[in-house]
Computed example of a mutant assay.
Amino acid sequence: MAAIPDKIQTWQMVEPGKEGKPGVLQKTTLPMPELAEGDALVEVAGCGVCHTDLGYFYDGVPTVSKPPLTLGHEIAGTVLAGPDALVGKQVIVPAVMPCGNCPICDEGRGNRCLAQKMPGNSLGVYGGFSSHIPVPAGDLCVVDDPKFPLSHYAVVADAGTTPYQAAMRADLKEGDLVIVTGITGGVGVYMGQIAKALGAKVVLGIARNQAKLDRALDFGVDYVINSKDKDIKQIKGEFGDICKQAGVPKNVGWKIFECTGTGGGQEIALALLSFLGKLVVVGFGLQANKYMLSKLMAFDAEIIGTWGCLPEYYPKVLAMVQDGRVQIEPFLETKPMSQIEQVFEQQHAGLFDKRQVLEPDF
């Protein structure tokens, strides 16, 4: 096991971006902190680049801890110090770690605990684009028998677990009818797989890239609609044809997971919401929407928000990854962390087909 250094090597966001213009990243060092009781020091094996990170870096979405701070909340690594039972263990660091001692946590909604710690947002200056990170030890998810390189498990920390939390918010169960808008995105690819793993009867994916839509059919998706250059009427027409083909109703009971965070994706999701349906908002965006709320009354339908994932769900998602019900390898690729600026720029431009995981090379 590696020795504990006296400094943390890191890439800090010293200035956030604004209106699509990039912020400023700086390679620097931080003093190695003394661990508080109940904390662990994790040597980072890999950290995924999430759309949320790009929101902070390009759009000025505010972080709880003010810059300079290190971004990155999709982390896998090895525990170097902390509770004896964890030292030497390979772990996934939950993207949000609740306090466990407030009314929200007591209600079982700790994923939205207002005192939660989120690397790269509300964990002081610490984030995953670093050599090491101090984190609360109690919520770490141990990877006992890794089937893949440890860095690859970083995607489970958010992209793989956020859909599971969304499924729990929707009370997704065997036999349900599911629509995923943004099925080809970094979260959507796992939303479809998890929905199918939980027993959904039909999973319909909607996106704009035909090649990725074709790929989705091999990973939990039964039908796809390419929404590129189509209006809502055309999309609803295709949806109706698919429902007829599948022998299911087009206007009752669909659970819709909006994973794009875009105005267009949200418009499609709202248009398909119907009787007894549920729309779960998974993706984040800054745009406003117009919707006749009285439709919810008429449909007896629901619109639900979801945030992060309860740490207690992580072992369940990890089990799905380990036994192959959820595939991660086809949807990620690794790069040296020294390429962080180029990766941010290229991902912001939409040039990647896979989740980027940065491996420390300080």
Results as ranks from 00 to 15, higher is better:
Gly205Pro: 06
Gly205Ile: 04
Ala195Tyr: 02
Lys21Asp: 06
Val64Leu: 15
Asp84Met: 01
Asp361Glu: 09
Ser130His: 12
Asp158His: 09
Val135Tyr: 11
Ile340Asn: 05
Ile8His: 08
Lys290Glu: 11
Ala301Asn: 03
Tyr164Thr: 00
Phe362Lys: 03
Pro68Met: 12
Lys228Gly: 00
Leu318Trp: 03
Ile304Cys: 07
Ser294Tyr: 04
Lys295Ser: 08
Glu341Asp: 13
Leu150Cys: 10
Gly55Asn: 13
Cys47Gln: 04
Ala301Pro: 02
Ile104Ala: 00
Leu25Ala: 03
Gly108Gln: 04
His51Trp: 10
Gly124Thr: 10
Leu217Ser: 13
Ala246Gly: 08
His132Glu: 14
Leu30Asn: 14
Asp229Glu: 11
Ile179Cys: 10
Thr63Asp: 10
Pro103Val: 00
Gly120Ala: 10
Asn251Gln: 14
Asn251Ser: 15
Leu270Phe: 07
Leu279Thr: 07
Pro83Val: 06
Gly253His: 12
Ala45Thr: 01
Gly192His: 04
Ala216Tyr: 08
Asp241Phe: 06
Met32Pro: 04
Lys255Tyr: 10
Thr334Val: 03
Asp158Phe: 08
Asn101Ile: 00
Ser227Phe: 00
Ala76Lys: 09
Gly17Asn: 07
Ile232Gln: 13
Val42Arg: 05
Pro311Met: 06
Val203Ala: 07
Phe219Thr: 02
Asn101His: 01
Met320Asn: 04
Arg208Trp: 01
Ile194Thr: 11
Lys18Trp: 07
Glu43Val: 02
Asn251Glu: 15
Lys21Ala: 14
Asp361Gln: 11
Trp254Ala: 13
Val96Gln: 09
Glu74Gln: 09
Phe257Cys: 11
Thr29Val: 14
Gly120Lys: 08
Asp231Phe: 01
Gly48Ser: 12
Ala167Ile: 01
Phe148Ala: 11
Thr162His: 10
Val87His: 08
Ala45Gly: 01
Asp84Arg: 06
Leu41Ser: 07
Val203Trp: 04
Gln322Leu: 05
Val321Met: 04
Leu86Phe: 06
Asn111Cys: 06
Ala301Phe: 02
Gly253Arg: 10
Asp218Pro: 01
Ile8Ala: 12
Val203Tyr: 04
Thr306Ser: 13
Gly265Glu: 05
Val357Gly: 02
Ile206Val: 14
Gly72Glu: 03
Gly160Ala: 12
Glu37Phe: 02
Asp231Gly: 14
Pro249Asp: 09
Pro330Ser: 14
Gln346Trp: 02
Ala319Asn: 05
Gly46Asp: 08
Gly324Asp: 03
Phe275Leu: 03
Gly77Asn: 12
Arg215Trp: 10
Ala36Thr: 07
